[in-house]
Nucleic acid binder design. Structure first.
Length: 944
RNA sequence: GCGGAUGUGGCGUAAUGGUAGCCGCGCCAGACUUAGGAUCUGGUGGCGAGAGCCGUGGGGGUUCGAGUCCCCCCAUCCGCACCA
């Protein structure tokens, strides 16, 4: 009987499941190793071949680590809350809980067929109340915390309340929304509601009016990472800016630690770089530009002279990374949302400014981004004072200044900033050069075509910093600003706080109720707050989120929060729950966390770089500050599996006919390419009969063939149903078996690399698995393993393979490992080696890749325990040693001869033999070599 | 515009600075077959009859020796993008 993968795979999958071989428990005798995949969102479409790529890689590694003696935690679950289930619910009226359950079931079936070593006893879904209880619990902890900059960590808000009661805001150094200033007396005199409002300014989860990305089509706000080019990532709908009251996580408080932590994790440089850019640290200065009186000369009347906080009635705080260019400031620009615009605009400019601000605020994100190069703006009629030069400068409003970065106000230095330059040219504002490559190279900026943005050079026309380099000038300027009391050196981050409210149904409800208009946390012992039943998932008539439809959505008579949490809430701390998934009293026990610590290897897509992977790190750092988890970074090593693109096939219809012309001949006709289902194409050859039956319109198709075959064209595209290029793993498992699929997915290329899915090569891997099987079974399927002692050459084949597989596993180089198995099988087949002593260790090696075949052979070898519990075989170097070695001998790097020497010979012994050789003499041609280079076991080079 | 990565046969890919193209697909030839989308054997970068010569996007450099290291250019992909 031939290799029957269907029978073997079904048999072992059942045994693994029944006997729970992959169940993991804390074992203090063993070192732990935690391997995690980014858990999937169970969509209605099921898994496609791209999903398992990362899972297979992590599965191989966790099986390998287990055989290396580690206690490996390798769990799986589902990120089950989210938009698609709800969209589907809106369309069909089905409860998301029901469709999610169906999808999860389908996913599980598909995953099981691939033979993963997951500990399914630890499975949970983010929509399980037992799990989201802890998402809610963590939210309450965040809500009840503030960020202390002095100790550089989150602290209970109660400490802050105590401090306020004792000394107000004096000496406070904390993360906050707006700077605040009050005394202990003022605090103590404040009402409960007023105190709660003040605390909102400091909480790590706070409620505030904010400009949000509002997606009308989805009916919800979106986080920055959920919007690309003004369109929602889910669905691709336009996104508008809207001022709304939202829950926000003060992620920005952790900006510096999120940045610093990157130096301590083993992620790819490109991913770290993406996060660094997203965090966007810039060093510079905050400078205070006081408002001038309308009458030009006596601005000093209102000039504060002392930096003492943002008194927006009298001055503007700006942020600049170029304090060295402050002498070149010729105007200021405020963002259209700036709260001072109304107050400063002069009557004669009022109408114009209002019109502009209204226009700018109502533009959609997409319009704004599409027209980035278009300069627009308006003069307010007001002037500010440059605190260094005492000059008056006009204040403009323009949407090229963003409200949510820095202070929403800038000092414009048109000579040295391209955006300011474009603005100055458009509105004919002065341009003043203050930086030049050298003191001699000063020119007339009126003749410039573009600004000089370079951060190297020297300061010119710049008072006391003239002649200094840009770097020195900047430092000196910050000192001066400090001395004058008009600013300070500071750091700004691009990273924004994360909006945490979604106007959706299918998410975690907030454990929050409202009393007197202020939010309060529901007591922890009453968690979870379970998602209530609603019969419709659309917003209400009044525009309230769907939870407003729920009956009795109140707590002790007080209204509850209508928003739900965003998708990233449930995925931010799920890896911690896997450590102790059934704990009813705690998120996870200290014992479990002390043992499992954090994820050693995390495998997932790079598309989460600025979303999940930031939020998770924030979440983890917060819990670390609370003393709940022992590691401050959640994911020690991270591998980004590449995306699997689709490989579409095409047929070419001759225009106006039902004739289809093969790829090689299509240039002779006028044709239209038509997508054809990749499942009826094999190695780019079309199955003509299947094509005719595929769709009625092709039933009487005629073909123009080349060499009797119809060759299809192909192209790499996104995998999608409409392109008929979706490869479903089930079909491949059905046809070739899970072991072949697993090895083929690895064989495609390095895990990290994006590549098109191409089934053309799968036959090769299938042949290998069959060949491997046949080494130990005859045509009748009988076991033909011999107990004969292997030869030295056979041992060499084995140990070469052990070494290679071990190295490749450690390097996550699974594609080359598969090649190594093939080479090994080829060598054994050639030697007709079917010996037990070779097969036994080989079985262990290959079990990580092809677990079903390995398990079957392992059992046939007489083992009663699963091969996952076997030890990784030891490598024996002694079989590698050769008796002699053939060196290529080259002259000046050109290879000319091959000579054989015993391996044990050193250079001293080789040299005389070498020089006496007739062939060498010929090439030396009487010359004395300058140098002889021997690279052990590789090459001899004679330098003439 | 800024940042990151990648360029090797017809294709996917492989090469601690040391004989470039391992392994697989495809293709060619052969064997066994009633048959082959089964299995096995051999061949397969280009040029050349041959010895040999030329070949890792292009151009320089370091080195006895470069796909690999350094500099410049070109192309493709990805991320960010009015972030002051």
């Amino acid at each position: 009987m031939e290799y029957n993968f269907q029978e073997i795979e079904a048999k072992w999958q059942k045994i693994w499941r029944d006997s729970k071989v992959y169940k993991t428990e804390i074992d203090l005798q063993k070192s732990k190793y935690y391997v995690l995949d980014m858990f999937p969102y169970p969509s209605g479409a099921g898994l496609h071949v791209g999903h398992p790529l990362g899972y297979i890689a992590s599965d191989i590694y966790s099986r390998y680590k287990r055989q290396k003696g580690f206690n490996v935690l390798h769990p799986m679950g589902y990120d089950a809350f989210g938009l698609p289930a709800e969209q589907y619910a809106i369309q069909t009226g089905q409860q998301p809980a029901v469709t999610t359950e169906q999808n999860v079931k389908r996913y599980r079936e598909q995953l099981d067929k691939i033979g993963f070593a997951f500990d399914w006893d630890r499975e949970f879904r983010t929509c399980d109340p037992d799990y989201y209880k802890w998402t809610q619990w963590t939210f309450i902890q965040i809500f009840n915390s503030y960020y202390c900059r002095k100790c550089d960590k989150a602290r209970p808000i109660a400490e802050l309340v105590e401090a306020f009661a004792k000394s107000g805001t004096e000496g406070l150094d904390v993360a906050q929304t707006e700077p605040m200033d009050f005394t202990a007396e003022e605090w103590n005199a404040a009402s409960e509601k007023e105190q709660q409002e003040i605390l909102m300014n400091y909480r790590l989860a706070y409620l505030a009016d904010t400009w949000v990305n509002w997606c009308p089509k989805l009916g919800t706000v979106l986080a920055n990472d959920e919007v690309v080019n003004g369109l929602s990532v889910r669905g691709g709908f336009p996104v508008e800016r809207k001022l709304m009251k939202q829950w926000i996580l003060r992620v920005s408080a952790y900006a510096e630690r999120l940045l610093e932590g990157l130096d301590r994790v083993e992620w790819t440089d490109s991913l770290k770089e993406i996060q660094r850019n997203w965090i966007g640290r810039s060093e510079g200065a905050a400078v205070w530009f006081p408002l001038a009186k309308q009458e030009a000369s006596d601005w000093k009347d209102i000039y504060m002279g002392q930096y003492d906080g943002p008194h927006h009635e009298t001055a503007f705080e700006i942020f600049t990374t170029r304090p060295d260019t402050i002498y070149g400031v010729t105007f200021m620009v405020l963002c259209p949302e700036h709260e001072m615009i109304d107050a400063i605009t002069t009557p004669e400019h009022k109408a114009e400014v209002e019109a502009y601000v209204t226009w700018a605020k109502n533009r959609s994100e997409r319009e704004r981004q599409a027209e980035v190069k278009k300069v627009s703006g308006v003069f307010t009629g007001a002037f500010a004072v440059n605190p260094i030069t005492d000059e008056q400068i006009p204040i403009w409003v323009s949407d090229y200044v963003l409200s949510d970065y820095g202070t929403g106000a800038i000092m414009a230095v048109p000579a040295h900033d391209s955006r300011d330059f474009a603005f100055a040219r458009h509105f004919n504002l002065p341009v003043r050069q203050v930086v030049a490559p050298s003191l001699e190279e000063v020119s007339d900026p009126d003749t410039w075509k573009e600004s000089l943005d370079s951060k190297t050079g020297v300061c010119v026309n710049s008072g006391f910093i003239t002649g200094m380099t840009v770097k020195e000038g900047g430092k000196a300027m910050i000192e001066r600003i400090k001395t004058l009391g008009v600013g300070y050196g500071t750091v700004n981050y691009r990273l924004r706080d994360a909006i945490f409210s979604r106007q959706r149904y299918w998410g975690e409800p907030f454990p929050i109720y409202y009393k007197d208009g202020m939010p309060y946390a529901i007591p922890e012992e009453e968690l979870p707050v379970t998602l209530p039943y609603v019969d419709e998932f659309k917003p209400t008539e009044t525009g309230e989120p769907p939870l407003a439809r729920a009956q009795n959505w109140t707590y002790k008579g007080f209204p509850m929060e209508y928003n739900t949490m965003p998708g990233f809430a449930g995925s931010s701390g799920y890896y911690l729950r896997y450590m102790d998934p059934h704990n009813a009293e705690q998120y996870f026990s200290k014992e479990a966390n002390d043992y499992w610590q954090n994820v050693d290897l995390y495998v997932g897509g790079a598309e989460h770089a600025t979303g999940h992977l930031i939020y998770s790190r924030f979440w983890n750092k917060f819990l670390f500050d609370m003393g709940l988890c022992c590691k401050d970074e959640p994911f020690q090593k991270l591998i980004n599996q590449g995306m699997i693109q689709g490989r579409s096939n095409f047929v070419y219809r001759v225009v106006g006919t039902n004739q289809y012309v093969s790829l090689g001949l299509k240039d002779q006709y006028e044709t239209t390419p038509i997508h054809v289902d990749v499942n009826i194409v094999h190695n780019d050859v079309l199955d003509l009969e299947a094509f005719k039956q595929w769709m009625p319109e092709f039933a009487d198709a005629e073909f123009i063939l080349e060499d009797g075959k119809y060759i299809c064209g192909w192209e790499v595209e996104k995998m999608s149903k409409s392109k008929y290029n979706v490869q479903n793993p089930d079909d491949l498992v059905e046809k070739y078996g899970a072991d072949t699929l697993r090895m083929y997915e690895m064989f495609l290329g390095p895990v990290e690399m994006s590549k098109p899915w191409d089934t053309n090569g799968i036959e090769g891997v299938f042949r290998f698995v069959k060949k491997f099987w046949r080494l130990y079974h005859n045509a009748e399927g009988e076991w033909i393993v011999s107990d004969e002692e292997p030869t030295r050459a056979e041992f060499k084949t084995l140990h070469k393979t052990i070494k290679k597989i071990e190295d490749d596993n450690e390097k996550f180089s699974f594609n080359t490992a598969v090649s190594a198995f093939m080479i090994c099988a080829n060598e054994l087949a050639e030697a007709k080696c079917n010996k037990r002593k070779i097969l036994e260790p080989l079985c262990v090696l290959i079990s990580a890749y092809a677990p079903h075949v390995a398990e079957e052979l392992w059992a046939e070898l007489g083992h009663t325990d699963s091969v996952v519990n076997a030890s990784f075989p030891a490598y024996d170097d002694s079989y590698m040693q050769e008796n002699d070695f053939t060196y290529p001998v080259s002259f000046n790097g050109k290879m000319r001869l091959k000579m054989t020497f015993p391996v044990t010979y050193g250079l001293q012994e080789i040299e005389p033999i070498l020089m006496a050789d007739a062939g060498v003499q010929k090439w030396l041609d009487g010359k004395t070599p300058k140098k002889i280079i021997v690279v052990p076991k590789r090459i001899i080079n004679i330098v003439l």
